[in-house]
Design a binder for these strands. Structure first.
Length: 291
DNA sequence: AGTGTCGCCTGAATGC
DNA sequence: TGCATTCAGGCGACAC
């Protein structure tokens, strides 16, 4: 069984890790049936989802924080985990025990199951034609992948030019770049030494270059660690791999920023502010300006 | 169009 | 102990 930890905020690295787990277990297998335990999540389940049966999972991919199960009939099952969503994979040897908030369950032809569990129900599951995904309502306005070759300093500079909005909400804007959520936005700005409240348009080229580098770096590092809060139970021999990324500033109000040169006795530690209703964590010394 | 705020939703943590 | 309140945030809706 592969599952994710309780306090789980699926950002891009976590979704990437989930996709890799799914690919390993499901690619080439056939979905035998779909069980829906409610009428929908953030959006209603389409009627076609209930009828999904006897179709092969051709491949698994990811766009932004969406899990894409590309099916052999030309359609894609689109899953989004929202705030609290998890995909729990039960291998063919496992016994599936229905859990509270299992809203959608895929049963595979070999008996394996995938349960989508989402207490807060901010997630989403829907179907679309694979070849029309780019123009799908969910995808057409999305910016480039942060780890892709289109996410360059030149691109970012053009996108942020003249913007009055603070740089932190700007890099969390899906239209500018996808997959940078609240955790990694704070972490990348800290690593780049940029004040999260600086106007996006005021961040100079050198600082932007560092910001871009650090966005890529923190995401890659988290993917390498298997997602910041994913645990992988290999049920046969009980081997447990448990990854817990240590954040430098996120959720560390009043504590020492990890790896920072500042003096906590003078700063009082990591500072926390609200931007657009979301918590931002930063170092008042390292991130005193535009870098 | 750009920008800012709100609400969806439940469970964990906290307050009295 | 137990009930009420607060907080967490991805993302769409909405107002200005």
């Amino acid at each position: 069984m592969i599952e994710t930890k309780g306090a789980f905020m699926p950002e891009l690295p976590e979704v990437e890790t989930v996709c890799r787990g799914l690919a390993k277990k499901l690619a080439g297998r056939k979905i035998k049936s779909v069980t829906l335990n409610r009428s929908g999540l953030r959006v209603p389940f389409p009627p076609a989802l209930r009828k999904l049966a006897d179709v092969k999972v051709a491949s698994i991919s990811r766009r932004a924080k969406y899990v894409l199960m590309n099916l052999s009939d030309g359609r894609t099952l689109i899953l989004h985990l929202g705030m609290s969503g998890r995909l729990v994979i039960f291998g063919k040897e496992d016994v599936y025990k229905p859990a509270t908030h299992d809203h959608l369950v895929l049963t595979m032809d070999d008996g394996a199951r995938v349960a989508m569990n989402d207490p807060r129900r901010f997630g989403l599951a829907t179907l679309a034609q694979t070849d029309a995904l780019e123009n799908h309502k969910l995808f057409r306005a999305l910016g480039p992948e942060p780890l892709g070759k289109d996410f360059t300093v030149k691109y970012l500079a053009e996108k942020l030019k003249g913007k009055k909005v603070a740089v932190k909400p700007a890099i969390m804007d899906q239209r500018i770049v996808v997959g940078v959520g609240n955790i990694y936005a704070s972490e990348a700005l800290f690593a780049a030494g940029i004040d999260p409240e600086a106007r996006a348009g005021d961040v100079g080229p050198a600082a932007l270059k560092r910001l871009l580098t650090e966005i890529k770096r923190v995401l890659k590092r988290a993917i390498k660690a298997g997602g910041s809060s994913l645990r992988d139970y290999v049920q046969t021999d009980g081997e447990l791999g448990y990854f817990q990324h240590q954040f430098a500033v996120y959720d560390r109000e009043g504590q020492k920023c990890k790896g920072c040169v500042c003096d906590i006795r003078k700063t009082g530690g990591v500072r926390r502010i609200a931007q657009g209703g979301r918590s931002t964590f930063y170092c008042p010394v390292k991130q005193a300006g535009l870098g």
